[in-house]
Structures are given as structure tokens and as C-alpha cells.
Design a protein around this nucleic acid. Structure first.
Length: 483
RNA sequence: GGCGCCGUAGCCAAGUGGACCAAGGCGGGGGCCUGCAAAGCCCCUAUUCGUGGGUUCGAAUCCCACCGGCGCCUCCA
């Protein structure tokens, strides 16, 4: 079955096929590295990670570009404020971004270009636009003339005629544009408040690139044109992506990107998550409170990417518990797979696995309906558990491996189990020995019928953060999960 | 004012004209299992999908109105 995706360009769900058979080119707007990225930013990046993983799951090879915006108003202002260079300011945030990125199990893209490494290419693009009569210079700055670009605003479904200058543009950043709706390609002229942290030479004198320029250029220099997918947060539809299209298509005369995908924002406790309003949390904040990245990942990809996601600590607790359930499930399957009678296959597990995988794929094919995909997974969990309750260990052993493979397959897209695996807390050798000694003592007490003593030992272990579980094949222990 | 989105059980969240008399997660109640637990399983927890109309043989799903919440409208993922 083919994958269908909602394309912002057409405002419809369309069948997706890459232009180059078997190979998908995608451009995903990256972070502005003026500060630590927050959970809301990662909601978008995680949606894109699911898309990427699912494309790979479907057998495509993906070439992804994610830019790092290291020159814009915010990075410049932050650098000026601290009296540091742009690089000095952004470098730690680039590192922090990758730290969180990896902690959340987001697959690495093929390219992470920084805007400041491509300024000459940006200048060239502006020159092309000038040569084609789509740009004009005023006092060392260059603007894009939207009246010369017929399809302007199509992505955002904007009627250029009704576009009027917004309040934000009317504020402190007034430029000498012919038309208030035109946007800046190159910012030249005197900008004393910016110091000299971001100045490059250009045919129009010293200046720096406008924000939208980098994405057009980075996509054009790293991907074919047109490329398959371009994505970002909904807020980028206008003006950012609208202007990216105008720049790239204006300069080349060719279509820029085929599919445009936009993720809705995450709210924090029902309110917009944003830096400027101080309403945000970072992964670090959550980890300091004892939450694990796997739970954060689970929550952030629990719902459809085109639906708003309300991030709450309650939701995070729920997410953590559902990850626990999956971990328990896998542990149980692994134990079953390691059991006796490895060649016997007489359970319903293979059928359940096949059906789960089919439902999983059907769900994701439908514009990445991940909520339904989770549903398919959890139905699988319940049914397999029931089958395991019914069948003996000898009967289930071989089939358990089939089920395990299906689970791993689904997790190649969801990425939660793989992540949780790496989070298992290290138990120091000394403590491990103590725990094992206590568990053995308890087993002995139980064998002797001394349940009072057995329960006392269990209490002792619980107080030390260890839970004991008695199974037909002996007692097992594990670290207690957090509240 | 323009463009657009959402309102489904205690919470989160699929479903968007009948083929499921509404998936799944979390929580809650009851039961099985267990020495007791834990884990797991079984049953129950929305006769109903913001409200009111309408279309239709049939609507959570389409149309209209209203109520409530939210996003964008020039450098926010």
C-alpha cells in the first residue's frame, strides 16, 4: 500500500511517491541555535523523525537535510548582549541540540548545514533574483518584489492583494521597501544595534542574509530540485516557507518542493509554548524531575502530527507507564523465546504478529496516523499476552521469536523501546550482590513456608527501590519505576 | 477583518455517512491467577460523540447557526 500524506500545497491527502524511485529527498527546518530548544520544538522534529523512520520502514532510502539557523535577529541580539561572536554563542546550543536530539532517539539526518557556512551561495541566489528582475536594492538592502512572482502566497492560501502590513513589521524594523509586503533578502545599511557580529561583504556592501534565504539555498545546494518533502512547524507556512518558495522558484524557474508537511504545535498545560512568553520546558527540565526521554518521546508522538498536542506532566506519567507495559511485554517475550521446545510452533502468535504489522502499516499509510498505529501495537500486546497465558512455555518458544520480531519492527518506527533499552539504570555491583542475596534469602524463607519473613524481606527491598516479582520460574527483581 | 484548526468516557486520543450498536493508552471498580503481592488475562467504566436545527432510509461523521478553545496574518517548531 502506498503512503498518503497531507500536502499543505493542495490542502489534500495525496499519494506519496518519490520522484527518484526508492529514494526520498527531504528538507526539514531546523532549530535556531540562540538558546536551548524546548519540548515544543522537538514535537515537530519528532514528527519528522517518525516520517523519516516510516519511509525507511517502507524500504525507501532517505536523504535528509536539517539546517541550523545560526544567523537571525535572535542569535545576533544574543551575541551582542553577551559580547561574543556568533560562533561562540551558537556552538554550545548546537551541541545541546544534538544532545537532546540523540536522547530522544531522533535519527540523524544526512546533512546539518549551518546558515553561516553558505553566505556566498545566498549572495549568488540574490544576484540571480536581481538578474531576473525579481529583486531590487534600496540603500544596500535587497528586497524580493512579490508583485513580480505570480504564485506568491499559494502555500499559505493568501491573497496577495489582501496582504497588509502586520503589526510586527510596522514596529521597530522599518525598511525602505517599495511595497510593505515585500520581504528582505539581504539586510545591508547601517545596523549599529547589531555591532559587527554578523557582517559579510556583498555586491551591495556589507550586510547579512534575510532569514528565509538560508533554507532556499541549503535545500538547493544539498538536494535535487524539485525534492520530495519539505516540512516544519505550522507557524512556518507563512512567511517562511512562502518566501522560501518565492526565492527558490523565482531564481531557478523550477518547482522547489513537491510535498509540504506541517506539524501542529505543542501546548504546555493548555497554553502556547513559547520562549518569549516563558511558557516552555526543555528536556533537561524533565530529566531533572526524573522523567525519561523514552516517556517524553512516547508522549510527543502519541497523537497525530496535524493535531495540537497538549503537554502535561500527567500525560507524561501516563506515557511512562505505557512504556513500562511495553518493556514488560518484551521481557516476557524474550523469556518465552529463550524457553524449551524451540522448534514447536503451535500458537496463534504468528497470525497475531502478521495482523498487527498489517494494521500498523495501514494506519501509518494514512497520513501517519500514529495514534491508530499505537492502537494496533497495544492490541497486539494484549492478544499476545493472552496467548502466552494460555500456551505453555514449550509451546510458545519458537513463535515468541516471531512476535518479538514484529515488536522490533514496529519499534523501528516508534523508537521507544530501543530508547528505553539504553535508559536502564546501572546497578552498582555491590548493590546488585546485596539485592541478589536478599532475594535468595526470601526464596529460602518462602520455601520454608516462613511468609512473614519473606514479606519482611520484600518490604526491605521495596524500601531500597527494588520490586520483586514471583514467577513460575523463580523470583525476579527490578528497580521500581518512578511514581 | 483575512486564512485555518479543534471540541469524542475521569484524563489523553483514534474513528469523519451504514460493513466496529465509538480503537488504543492512563486511571478506577469487580474477578481469575498468587501464600500474599507483582505481572498478565477476563468483565465493567461514552445507549453516546460541545449545543440547537437541517440533509439522508441511515450522521460522531455532511450542511447551517450558536457556544467554547486555539493557531497564523513578515524573522515563533
Amino acid at each position: 500500500m502506498p503512503l498518503r500524506l497531507y500536502n499543505t500545497l493542495s490542502r489534500r491527502v495525496e499519494e506519496f511517491r518519490p520522484l527518484d524511485d526508492g529514494r526520498v529527498s527531504m528538507y526539514t527546518c531546523g532549530p535556531t541555535v540562540y538558546d536551548r530548544a524546548h519540548i515544543g520544538n522537538f514535537r515537530t522534529f519528532l514528527s519528522e523523525d517518525v516520517l523519516r523512520r516510516y519511509l525507511e520502514w517502507k524500504g525507501y532510502r532517505v536523504v535528509q537535510v536539517r539546517n541550523l539557523t545560526d544567523v537571525d535577529d535572535r542569535t545576533i541580539h544574543a551575541a551582542v548582549e553577551r559580547g561574543s561572536s556568533l560562533r561562540e554563542l551558537t556552538e554550545p546550543f548546537v551541541e545541546a541540540f544534538f544532545t537532546d536530539h540523540d536522547r530522544l532517539g531522533i535519527e540523524r539526518a544526512e546533512h546539518y548545514p549551518r546558515a553561516t557556512d553558505f553566505v556566498p551561495e545566498m549572495v549568488q541566489l540574490v544576484q540571480k533574483l536581481e538578474a531576473r528582475g525579481l529583486a531590487y536594492e534600496v540603500d544596500g538592502s535587497v528586497y524580493f518584489d512579490i508583485s513580480k512572482f505570480p504564485g506568491y502566497g499559494q502555500l499559505a492560501q493568501l491573497d496577495p492583494g489582501s496582504l497588509k502590513e502586520g503589526e510586527r513589521a510596522a514596529g521597530d524594523e522599518a525598511y525602505e521597501r517599495d511595497d510593505a509586503r515585500d520581504f528582505v533578502l539581504w539586510k545591508g545599511g547601517d545596523r549599529p544595534e547589531e555591532g559587527d557580529v554578523a557582517t559579510w561583504d556583498s555586491p551591495w556592501g556589507p550586510g547579512r542574509p534575510g532569514w528565509h534565504l538560508e533554507c532556499s539555498v541549503l535545500a538547493l545546494t544539498h538536494l535535487p530540485q524539485p525534492f520530495d518533502l519539505h516540512s516544519g512547524g505550522v507557524d512556518l507556512i507563512f512567511p517562511h516557507h512562502t518566501n522560501e518558495i518565492a526565492q527558490a522558484e523565482g531564481a531557478t524557474g523550477k518547482p522547489f518542493a513537491r510535498f509540504w508537511l506541517h506539524a501542529k504545535h505543542a501546548l504546555l498545560d493548555g497554553r502556547k509554548m513559547s520562549k518569549s512568553e516563558g511558557n516552555y520546558v526543555t528536556l533537561d527540565d524533565l530529566m531533572e524531575r526524573g522523567y525519561k526521554p523514552s516517556a517524553v518521546r512516547r508522549l510527543l508522538i502519541s497523537g497525530h502530527y496535524r493535531m495540537e498536542l497538549n503537554f502535561t506532566l500527567t500525560g507524561l506519567d501516563d506515557a511512562a507507564r505505557s512504556v513500562e507495559r511495553l518493556l514488560e511485554f518484551r521481557r516476557r517475550l524474550e523469556a518465552a523465546a529463550a524457553g524449551e521446545g524451540k522448534d514447536l510452533s503451535s500458537t496463534a502468535l504468528p497470525e497475531l504478529a502478521a495482523r498487527a504489522l498489517k494494521d500498523f502499516e495501514l494506519a501509518l499509510d494514512d497520513d501517519l496516523n500514529i495514534a491508530e498505529a499505537w492502537g494496533a501495537l497495544f492490541v497486539f500486546v494484549r492478544e499476545v499476552n493472552a496467548e502466552l497465558d494460555r500456551a505453555g512455555p514449550a509451546e510458545a518458544a519458537a513463535d515468541a521469536r516471531t512476535a518479538l520480531a514484529a515488536l522490533a519492527s514496529m519499534d523501528r518506527v516508534l523508537g521507544v523501546l530501543a530508547l528505553a533499552e539504553g535508559e536502564a539504570a546501572e546497578v552498582p555491583e555491590e548493590k546488585r550482590r546485596w539485592i541478589e542475596e536478599r532475594v535468595a534469602a526470601r526464596t529460602a524463607a518462602r520455601a520454608g513456608g516462613d511468609y512473614g519473613r519473606a514479606d519482611a524481606i520484600r518490604e526491605e527491598l521495596v524500601a531500597a527501590g527494588v520490586e520483586v516479582e514471583d514467577t513460575p520460574s523463580g523470583s525476579r527483581w527490578r528497580l521500581a519505576r518512578r511514581g
